[in-house]
Write a protein that binds this DNA or RNA. Structure first.
Length: 319
RNA sequence: CCCGCCCUAGCUCAGUUUGGCAGAGCGGACGGCUGUAGACCGUCUGGUCCCCCGUUCAAAUCGGGGGGGCGGGACCA
């Protein structure tokens, strides 16, 4: 794979890359660059988590070394439970990610607390704490935090630790949802003054919820790895999917972000009275037919739920 | 440490003045209409009124105590 091919694979389905120029430069100069995503261990891995995992798989194909940070202390600071519970969940998450399709040989799993409690880490974090204003730290957490109403001091440590992680783990490219943008920018801005290189950031979009609204923890409008195949099918069938519209359409998004990266051909079984079976090589072809209303939402949904279940099945078994 | 304000359904809040069946909107569930969903229409669902004690025939409401949150003041050695 040459640099141009790597670039287009890495760029696929991203919301933004900060910056493309730096990424090209990295690919030209470094044999095996290091990338990472930090995940708060979660009892219910959902399609949002798997979206960044898809990007890690792309990066692995492009020759990257992948580090997955199981961020137990971050989860703890974000009030996701006791450290003991969180660590148990982290073990389970690790198995799910491997089963999902990450290459075992090229993936390092790192538990946050293994290195985040070391003296030099803490001391440098204190140094960083003198450089970052409270306002800036708080704003960086706007899209991340569990508790927005009465934020705790612990939450202010979160972006500082994330910055330290990127430095300490020697990360060239940090992957995350676009919700991580402000934290990543904070890291880029401050790492050089702590004598670390500033990372390149790849941000994935935040998917539209199944009801067509923003994903919301109170509404559970998404698909979990812990959902049974029947539940997945039911959720897809119940999902918002206006005929002919491809913008903010959760079903189209699942097809684009979760299914097409994992397959070469997408087929739809359709009754003869509705036009017979269909076959597509790219998501753009599907979008074209859907826009022209030559592909009905119900036929799309049936096929999407089948493909999605096939993709989720290996990881689901590990729960 | 002192002062003021706030806490009611999953969420946002009304109700507290003057004690009298616990309310609305949003959300959620189900059905109808749709070859999906949504929208629309219909039905249903909603509670430790922060906790405890007291007064009263009767307390979300009044009194006392406690907890949590927010804002301000004071201290500035």
């Amino acid at each position: 794979m040459d640099v141009q091919e790597k670039l287009s694979l890495i760029k696929r389905n991203t919301e933004e890359i900060v910056t493309k120029e730096e990424l090209r430069d990295l690919l030209e100069k470094k044999e095996e660059p290091v990338t990472y995503v930090g995940y708060e261990p979660s009892g219910s891995l959902h399609l949002g988590h798997l979206l960044t995992a898809n990007k890690l798989i792309d990066l692995q194909k492009a020759g990257f070394k992948v580090k997955i940070l199981l961020a137990d202390l971050h989860a703890y600071l974000n009030e996701k439970g006791s450290l003991e519970e969180i660590r148990k969940t982290a073990e389970m998450n690790k198995k799910c990610f491997l089963a999902y399709g990450l290459d075992k040989e090229k993936t390092d799993f790192i538990l946050g607390s293994e290195f985040q409690l070391k003296d030099d880490y803490i001391l440098e974090m204190y140094e960083l704490s003198l450089k970052v204003t409270l306002n800036r730290a708080k704003r960086s957490m706007d899209e991340v935090t569990r508790r927005k109403q009465n934020p705790r001091v612990g939450q202010m440590l979160y972006p500082l630790m994330q910055t330290m992680d990127i430095g300490k783990l020697g990360i060239d490219v940090a992957v995350g949802g676009i919700d991580q943008r402000k934290i990543h920018m904070l890291a880029r801005e401050n790492l050089p003054s702590l004598d670390y290189k500033k990372q390149i950031s790849i941000h994935m979009p935040i998917l539209t919820g199944l009801d067509g609204e923003k994903m919301s923890s109170s509404k559970e409008n998404w698909i979990d790895l812990s959902d049974t195949s029947e539940e997945v099918k039911q959720k897809i069938m119940d999902a918002y999917c206006p005929q002919g519209e491809i913008e903010n359409n959760p079903i189209i998004e699942i097809l684009r972000y979760h299914i097409f990266p994992r397959i070469d051909e997408f087929t739809i079984e359709r009754k003869e009275e509705y036009g017979g079976n269909l076959s597509y090589k790219t998501v753009e072809e599907v979008e074209k037919d859907f826009s022209k209303q030559e592909l009905h939402p119900l036929d799309l949904k049936k096929s999407v739920s089948n493909y999605l279940n096939k993709i989720l099945e290996p990881a689901r078994k590990k729960i």
